[in-house]
């Protein structure tokens, strides 16, 4: 168990990485959720052109491997004159990528809303942003909570890929620890446990939110 002692001695590294992961995940979750919700508007647009354009974005994100997408943002964009540091590149990649998924799952929830509910919105004079914000979005969110939860967990796991562009998140720190002291088992287990704690916390929160939503759908 010597390996775990070493990990414990250097726990600051792991904790630093964990904090970094939490920060990245929080930003990516908020960013991709917000942009995803906004993207459902063009996705559901009655104008074909607008809808197909948004669909192309969603399909692209869903078909590109995340690892490749990270490379593209970090190594590819600078050749177009757009340059972020590695941390920002990672966050931007996570946001843009998961926006596609969030948009698609919210779009599906929107399409499954009872039609009459939106018609009632029209009939009572709601229009445009007000219709979206007050009549459509809340029931969409309430019905999509379990799927949003799954996507948040996906974001947590995707964040581990950012080690390839040397973002100092949990996986990266665990890797550094094991290469420095050669304690692969202990350091990776430590990382796994922290990922697990994160996901269980998300699941618990989602479960709580779901019970809140139950009465409202």
């Amino acid at each position: 168990m010597n390996g775990f002692n070493i990990v414990w001695q250097h726990r600051d590294m792991i904790i630093g990485g964990f904090e970094n992961t939490l920060m990245i995940v929080a930003l990516a979750a908020i960013g991709s959720f917000t942009l995803g919700a906004l993207l459902t508007i063009p996705l559901m647009s009655r104008h074909r052109g607008v809808a197909s354009l948004a669909t192309v974005y969603v399909d692209t994100m869903r078909c590109v491997p995340f690892l490749l997408f990270v490379y593209l943002i970090y190594f590819g964009l600078p050749s177009l004159g757009i340059q972020f540091d590695n941390w920002s590149s990672g966050v931007v990649a996570l946001i843009l990528y998961n926006t596609g998924y969030m948009a698609e799952l919210l779009r599906a929830a929107w399409a499954n809303l009872p039609k009459e509910l939106i018609e009632a919105g029209h009939a009572f004079g709601f229009v445009g942003w007000g219709l979206f914000r007050r009549i459509i979005l809340p029931p969409v969110l309430f019905s999509a909570i379990p799927l949003i939860g799954n996507q948040l967990i996906q974001i947590v796991k995707d964040s581990a890929f950012l080690t390839v562009i040397a973002v100092g998140e949990l996986t990266h720190q665990a890797t550094s620890l094991q290469t420095t002291y050669f304690v692969p088992f202990a350091s990776f287990i430590a990382a796994v446990v922290l990922y697990w704690v994160t996901c269980v916390t998300i699941e618990g929160t989602v479960g709580f939110a779901n019970r809140f939503a139950e009465a409202r759908r």
Binding site: P114, E116, L117, H122, V127, G128, P138, P139, F142
Partner: peptide
């Protein structure tokens, strides 16, 4: 325009067969 139509609709009430209440409220 959708906005003008919406303004006129506010003067016409509607009661739906399947109620169409907003479930989140």
């Amino acid at each position: 325009t959708d906005r003008d139509l919406a303004a006129m609709r506010t003067r016409i009430g509607m009661v739906f067969q399947h109620f169409a209440l907003w479930p989140h409220l």
